[in-house]
Amino acid sequence: MPSDPRVQQALTALDRPIAEFRALMEGALRQADAFLEQQMADEPARVKRAAAALGVFGASHIDATRFAALHVGTRTATEPSLAALRRAVDILRQMADRGDNLFLAEVTSGAKIGAVVESALAMIGWAFGAIIVTDLVRGGRYVEADHASMLDPLQFGGWNRSERRAAPPLVVRVAGASVRATDLASFADGHVKLVLVVSGDCAPAPLARLITPGTFVVQTTDGSGLDRVALFDGPAFAALMPAGAATFVHDPALGRESWQRLTVSFIPDAPKKAVGAMSTWQQLEELKQLADLARTPFAVPNAGGNAAPAMGASDAADRIASWLLTQSGLGGTA
């Protein structure tokens, strides 16, 4: 999959949050390894490690044996908790070994987009559980009866607040006909970020249905705006669309009113044929929704040179409004 240049483009735009999640897993792994080593290792091994940690300069001036002894005092873990820790380490290593594939999903023909995302996120949830188990064991708080189930995959519905906040982005390759935006709405929480790489025939503005006041939504055909997905402090949906689709950015940070937040840069001609289960009427409805949200409710007074930048959206909204007038004959005829 990653050989697809558009998938690569999406991954590159999401490099930082992906790297952050990797660092999260790797950090837990390193902490777990260090803990296991301390539990298992005999004194010579501990001293060797302390000497390595002190570096070449330190090891030649500092007695590593006594330095290692300064930091013993770590609690001894029980055998079941150590077994859980080893399992957690295995899980994290497997996840880390998947590389970019951990952050990629593909909606094959016949599959439902919601289910594909659900199962991809369940893998991430598995990693979360493993990370928490490493913390619990190291902190001596692991209780087999309460916590063993954390080492199973965890569906998104079961993620808690902090897990939703730590969620990595997911790139989803999907055919236009399989894009069902409403199936994705339930994932809008925390820092969940879904980027669809859409190919083939597609409705022009499927993500319009996902616009809510706190969700960042972007449709792009050339990848512009994807970098802002990574920066947004909240849930985000993005679609890298085939040429000809509507392009817009909805950035919740830009204002309280939808017209302040929404910048529409391109509206295509009226849809002429059904795509998958989407009738032309349904497709048009999404375009109208976009136009509605972007429409300036009043004339913006001249606010000097320092008007809120979102006000620039009014131009596009006016264009959409006039376009809608010209298209009005189509309403309800699909």
Binding site: L24, E26, G27, I132, N160, R161, S162, E163, R165, A166
Partner: peptide, 18 residues
């Protein structure tokens, strides 16, 4: 989230939605 791998974000074990 953090700017680098030096610090892990806090994951809470139980659902502490109080």
């Amino acid at each position: 989230m953090t700017i680098s791998c030096g610090v892990l974000p806090v994951l809470e074990p139980e659902d502490q939605e109080h």
